[in-house]
Simulated scan of single mutants.
Amino acid sequence: MSSLIPPAPFWRKSSHSGSDPTSNCVELAAARRAVAVRDSKHPGGPVLRLSPAGFRSLLQGLRNI
């Protein structure tokens, strides 16, 4: 295995997700010095990559809504 190929991320679905596959849900994956976020309904779609500090800020902002 080449060290140039990054390992596939391990995606975890939100614990607030329902069992309905059409429900609004996000998945998270730890990446090197980042947190990756994607829509669970579109796993091949865009991925938002945030620094750990940026992810903490995002969570804090969501808690304040």
Rank of each mutant, 00 (worst) to 15 (best):
A36P: 03
A36D: 06
G44I: 14
D39I: 00
I65A: 11
G44R: 13
E27T: 02
I65E: 13
V37A: 04
G44P: 10
M1N: 12
G44D: 12
S51D: 05
A31K: 14
V37R: 00
S57I: 06
A53Y: 08
L4K: 05
D39A: 00
S3T: 15
C25E: 09
H16P: 03
K41F: 00
R56S: 07
H42T: 15
S40Y: 12
I65Y: 10
D20F: 15
P46D: 14
S17T: 13
S17V: 06
G54E: 11
L28F: 02
L62M: 09
G18A: 13
G44L: 11
L4T: 11
D20C: 11
A36T: 01
A29Q: 10
M1W: 14
R49Y: 06
D39C: 02
D39G: 03
A30V: 11
V47D: 05
S51H: 05
V47F: 04
R12L: 01
R12I: 02
P52E: 06
C25L: 10
V37C: 06
P6Q: 08
H42P: 03
S17C: 12
P6G: 12
R49E: 06
L59K: 08
S2W: 05
L58R: 08
D39W: 01
A36Y: 08
A34I: 03
L59R: 04
N64L: 09
R49M: 03
G61Y: 01
S57D: 12
L4A: 15
L59N: 02
D39N: 05
A31E: 11
R49V: 10
D20R: 12
S23I: 04
P6I: 12
S15M: 04
G18W: 02
R56P: 02
W11S: 07
G18H: 08
N64F: 13
E27N: 07
E27W: 02
R38K: 00
P43V: 03
L58T: 02
S2V: 00
G44Q: 15
A8P: 13
E27A: 04
W11V: 09
P46H: 08
P46T: 11
S51L: 07
A31T: 08
S15E: 00
S14D: 08
K13G: 07
P21N: 04
W11P: 09
A36M: 06
G18L: 09
S23F: 06
P43A: 05
L58H: 04
K41N: 01
R49A: 11
P7K: 10
L28C: 02
L28E: 01
S17I: 06
S2L: 10
V35N: 11
N64W: 14
G18T: 02
R49L: 01
A36K: 09
A30L: 06
S23Q: 04
A31R: 13
P46V: 09
S23D: 15
L4P: 09
Q60I: 05
R33M: 02
L28A: 02
K41S: 04
S40M: 09
S51R: 13
F10E: 07
S17Y: 07
R63M: 15
W11I: 07
V37Y: 09
S51M: 08
P21G: 08
V47R: 06
R63D: 15
R33I: 05
M1D: 14
R56H: 10
S51F: 07
R33H: 03
L58S: 04
A8H: 14
S17D: 04
W11K: 12
H16N: 13
R33P: 07
